[in-house]
Design a protein around this nucleic acid. Sequence first.
DNA 1: ACCGTATTCAGCGCG
DNA 2: TGAATACGGT
Length: 777
Amino acid sequence: MSPKLALLKNILEDLNEAQKLAVENIDGPIMVIAGAGSGKTRVLTYRVAYLLHKGVDAFHVLALTFTNKAAKEMKERVYQLIGSNEAKNVWMGTFHSIFARILRIEGHRLGYPSNYTIYDTDDSKNVIKQILKEQELDDKTYKPGMVLNRISSAKSSLYSTQKYNDDFEIQQQDKASGKPKLGLIFTLYNQRCFRSSAMDFDDLLYNMNVLLRDFPEVLYKYQNLFKYILVDEYQDTNFAQYFIVKQLAANNENLCVVGDDAQSIYAFRGANIQNILNFKNDYPDFKTYKLEQNYRSTKMIVNAANSVIAKNKDQISKIIWTQNNEGAPVQLMRASTENEEGQFIAHSIFENKMNHQLMNTAFAVLYRTNAQSRALEEALRRLNIPYRIYGGLSFYRRKEIKDLLAYFRLTINHKDGEALIRIINYPARSIGKTTTDKIIVSASEHEVSAWEVIEKPHEYNLGLNSGTTEKIRAFVTMIKSYAVMMETKDAYEVAKYIALHSGLMRDLNEDKTPEGISRYENIEELLNGIKEFTEQESKTEEGEPADTSMKTLGEYLQDIALLTDADADDKDDHDKVSLMTIHQAKGLEFPYVYIAGVEENLFPSIQSLGSRADLEEERRLFYVAITRAMEKVFITYAESRYKYGNLNFSEPSRFIDEIDEEFIEFPGSGGPEKRSLQTEERYQPKKSPLKSLVKKPDTSHLTRLKKITENGNNSHTLETDDSSLLQSGMDVEHERFGKGKILNIEGNGPNRKATVFFQMVGQKQLLLKFARLKILK
DNA sequence: ACCGTATTCAGCGCG
DNA sequence: TGAATACGGT
C-alpha cells in the first residue's frame, strides 16, 4: 500500500490547483471544463486512482468514454498508476461496450438472449434494403444510409417506433420530405433486428434506457453498483447517453463529467451541446472546475485559437493560457491549385523534418473532407514522405473478414439473419438468389428468424425442389456442428476449423490475383488475432485465481464487435506523417500541424452557412484543428480546386481573418519561417514536448549552429557551396543517417535534392540545402 | 454466374 | 473526377 501511496502523492504534486480540485472532490456532481491540452486525461485517470485510494471498491466505479482509443488510453494510464489487478475491476469503457455488457446480462428481460449479435452499419443498411425491396419502395427516395440516420437519431432521442409513428410533427416532416413510409420502415427494421436477436449500435443505448425505465430492480441494482460515475467528452453525449447517465447517477449524484464545449463537433450526429451547458440545471448543487492551463501548445497557438473561438456566442467562458514558449505565429500559405497546396505542404514537411531532425510522426496534415486527401497524398508520395491515412476501410469491414465473421456469428447466434444470408451461398453451395429470397420472404411473413425457416423447411412451405432442400439441410447441419464444437473447443480451434471446413479458405486460395492473395492473408491475420486472443486471455493476471476456462468464440466476437479501425494495433505504422480529417484528429496532438483547404464553402462547409449554430460548430472544428498543434500551425488554402470534376475558384476562409493578426503570419509579411524557428532553437533550449520525437539528442546539430553563428555565417550559404560539388555516384556521410552513396541528383538551387542510399537506413531523398552531406574521399 | 459498362453521387463519422 | 454500385448482356 505504501509505495502506491507515495506514487499518488507524487502525482498529486504534479497537478495544478484546478486539476487537484477536480480530482479530490469525489462526492456530489462536478463538471470539469477541460480546455484543449489542459490535462483532461490526467484528471480522469488520477480521479479513478484517487477513488480507489480512498477505499472505493473498483467495481463501484464507472468510467465512460466515447472511443475505444480513449478507453484504452485511460485503462493503460490507470493501470500504470495503481496496478492492473485493482484497476481491472473498474467499469471502464465506451458507452457502447459497457451497456452491451450489461445487456448480455439483463437483456433477457427485453427478450434478447445473452448471445445477441451486434449489427454494424453495413448489416443495418442491408436490413433496410431488404425492407425496401419487400415494401416495393424506391431506394432513391429512401436511401438506406439516410433512412438509417433517421432511425439512428430517433433512437438516440429515445423515440420508440410507436412514438415516432404517433408524433404528428414527425409524420408531417416525413410527408413533407416525400418519405411518408419512414415510420413503417423504422417499425419493420426493429422487428427484423429483434427476430434476428440483434441490436444495432443505437439499440445498445436505447435498450439500456428501456431496461432502466421498465425494470426498477435493474435501475436500483446499477444505481447501487455504480456509486461513482465519470464521463469523458460530455459535450459529445446524445440524449440517450445523457439520460442513462442521469438515471444511474440519480441516487447519489457522485457524477463527474469532463468536457469542453469549445470542442463540441458532433452535433450533426446527435451530440447535444446543451447537455454540458445545462449541467447546472440538472444538478443545482454542482461544482465546476475549469482546467484553463494548456500544456500542449505555444503561446502563439493558444492565442490564435482563443481569438478564433471568441467569435462564438454559445460557450462557457474560460481563459485558456499557457506557460509554454512564445513560439512562432501561425503561418499562412497560399497556393493557386490544390496540387500546389499539396506540394507546399510536402516541401514544408520535408524542410522542417531536415531542419529540426524530426520524425515523420511529428507532422499531421488535417483537412475538412476526405476528398481532399488525394492531392496531398500525391505530393507526399512524390517527395517519398511516408504517410498514413486514417479512416480508410477498417479491417473488420472488409468483405472476406465479414464473411468469416458471419460464420462465427451464425454459429453463436443462429437467428442472426444478416450473417445467414451472407454465407448461405458463400462459398457457392448452389443455394441461389431465388431460394434466399424465398427464405427471407417466408421468415418475414411468419414473423420468425431465417434460421427457423431453414431449420424446418417443411413447416414453411418454401416450394423448393428436393436438391435445394437437401443443400439447405446440409448447411444447417454444418452450422450446428460448429456450434457443438464450440462447446468444448477454444476460439482459435473453432475459428480455424470453420475457416477451413466451410471452404472459405479454399475459395480465397484459388484467387491468385493480388487482391485475392491479400484477402487470403487478411483471413490469416484474423486467425492470428484470434489465436492471440485465446492465448493472451488464458494466462490471467498474476495473483488471480487461475482462469481454467478457455476463451470461446463467443467471447472473441463480443470483444471485437465494437472495435473499429482506429483500434487495430498499428504494426507497420512506424514513422509516418498522419493524414486525417479534423474530426479524426480530435484528442490527438502533433508538433507540426498543417490545416489544408481553409477556404470559404469548404471550411466552413457550404452546408453550414445557413444557421448560426452550424457555423459555430465549424468554428469549433477550426479551433480543434489549431489546438492539435504543439509547436507550429500552417494554414493553407488554394485559389482553385476541383469539385466533382469541375474547377472552382475559392476564397480564403473567413476563419483566417478571425485569427488575431498578432498571431498569424501572412505570406511575404515576415521573413522565411526557417529563420524564426532556428532563432527559437538557438536561444530557447527548452524542455520541449518535441524531445521524445527527436531522433536523438543531436548535439552535433547544436554545435554546428553555434559554429555557424560564430562565423557570422548562416547555414544556407554554407550548404549551397558544399552541395554544389556533389554528384551522383559519390560516397557521402550524413550526420544522422551515416554513410551512403548518391544515386541521383535532381532539381536546381534551393530545391536541389539527392537520392542517397544509406547503409544504415536505406534509400532517402534529401534536400541538399539542409542535408549537410560530407563528401568521403 | 459473372463481368464490363452505365449511372449516380459527393460533409464530418463514435460504436 | 472517381468510386461504388446497379444493371444488362452473354
